[in-house]
Write a protein that binds this DNA or RNA. Structure first.
Lengths: 246, 246
DNA sequence: CGTTCGATTGAGCTTTCTCAAGCACAGTGG
DNA sequence: CCACTGTGCTTGAGAAAGCTCAATCGAACG
């Protein structure tokens, strides 16, 4: 199915306005498990974001659904006094539009130069209604995200700073492997230390200190500020699950 | 639709084996927005739990889906060393079975005497496939739970102990009002202080101390160990959103 | 009336936060 | 080519929120 979609995309001439849509639709289709690329392509529009640029804010009316095709996003919620909780990061192929409310429940902002494909929410909804497999894919996606959210609750409610950071790296690693299709040893960090801290329920200083700690333990190596090499994955897994001292 | 379902249930003679199923199906139907009660009734089975009795454990194969018809449940995940995160509580009418994995992602345990209606997962899946509206209801339910999980992430990652407890009470209050249909002033706490603590990412001692604090502030009153009266809901809301000192 | 178990209260401690200073790297202009 | 500057990262020291351990309380139950 994915192969079909890619072939369909490649059949278009370079620069053709539909090319991008097609490529992007591949992502939608891959995520939602839908095969009707032709229809998807007719509906889609393109959108670019610069680093730091918001896609929409918490409370904005949810009029569109998106698929991230290039770049990286952060999703977050704010408290009135400015405290922030990053609820997730998105990478190419990820779908953004699971909601039953009329308004968005969180803010989305680009971490780096990003490209998205979007569809009007209503038309997407109509399209989904005529494609039972897509509807099911949407449900599966929501169920999957729910499970991830529950794992994050364990992290935020019960893990130590070191365990949180270890879990974070492993999560990024698994995501990279899912996206890239093969085992990875390094992960990119398109987000700032503050973003990481706000995702893990810590402060940027604590994140920094734990990074230093893991570096001293030879568990990770900071290849660059925004690039971490996992030296000892087993150790990292043990730390992440709190099995260091029991 | 709900009225129809209830009438169908009441049409059966007292003690008839289908009565319970019918009543329970009302709950499933209410939650999932499905109207085909007759079919649901034919598929359902009954199950009772005593306080503290587990329904299933994290990692068990997910072979059934449930609707809670009476009582209250807690859902939790454990770390290897025993640390626990309660990811949610369930009350009558709540549906339990959102997963795409073969195994359960959390443990479920009865807080008090409880009654559930269950269906074999596979047969439920087949049934859902033939009822597009049910499939949509399932998606909406998952999306709703996802939003709730994200709100809980803010609580666990960024709120103070006082804010967490205030949010918890307001959540229970809203749930009670949704279930009861009218404004509520008191909430029952079928769970222990430890359960509350494990839900809020605190210790039972801290929960106890915050309870005393809110009591001294005249924001709540402890009508009994397991019953809280909300005296000043606005104040509680202000605390929950962190708007006390800004 | 005593026992038990959960809830509360108290005292000291630990982890993480806060605030502040120093560092490193990228971009800018002399 | 190199100092200048800004921004984000790191490191340090002290503070605080919440945790741990321990004692006490109190309601339910035999």
């Amino acid at each position: 199915m994915l192969a079909t979609a890619i072939r369909a995309a490649e059949a278009l001439p370079e620069g053709h306005p539909c090319l991008d849509c097609a490529v992007r639709s591949v992502a939608v289709c891959r995520v939602l498990g839908c095969d009707d690329l032709a229809t998807m392509r007719q509906l889609g529009w393109t959108l670019h974001l610069r680093p730091g640029q918001p896609l929409f804010h918490e409370g904005d009316p949810a009029t569109r659904v998106f698929t991230l095709t290039r770049g990286a996003l952060k999703l977050y919620k704010l408290l009135p006094d400015g405290r922030r909780q990053v609820t997730g990061f998105m990478f190419p192929g990820d779908f953004l539009g699971i909601t039953v409310d009329d308004d968005h429940a969180f803010t989305v902002e680009a971490l780096i130069e990003s490209q998205l494909c979007w569809f009007p929410r209503r038309r997407f909804g109509e399209f989904v209604e005529t494609h039972a497999d897509l509807e099911r894919g949407l449900y599966r996606l929501a169920a999957h995200e729910l499970a991830a959210a529950q794992a994050q609750m364990v992290l935020l409610g019960r893990k130590t700073a070191e365990e949180r950071v270890a879990s974070f790296f492993l999560g990024l690693l698994e995501r990279a492997e899912r996206g890239g299709g093969r085992a990875a040893r390094t992960v990119d960090l398109p987000m700032s230390r503050l973003d990481i801290a706000d995702y893990l329920g810590l402060t940027k200083e604590t994140v920094s200190r734990v990074l230093a700690l893991l570096r001293n333990k030879q568990t990770i190596r900071l290849a660059a500020l925004t690039r971490v090499e996992i030296i000892d994955r087993d150790a990292l897994t043990a730390i992440a699950e709190g099995m260091t001292d029991c």
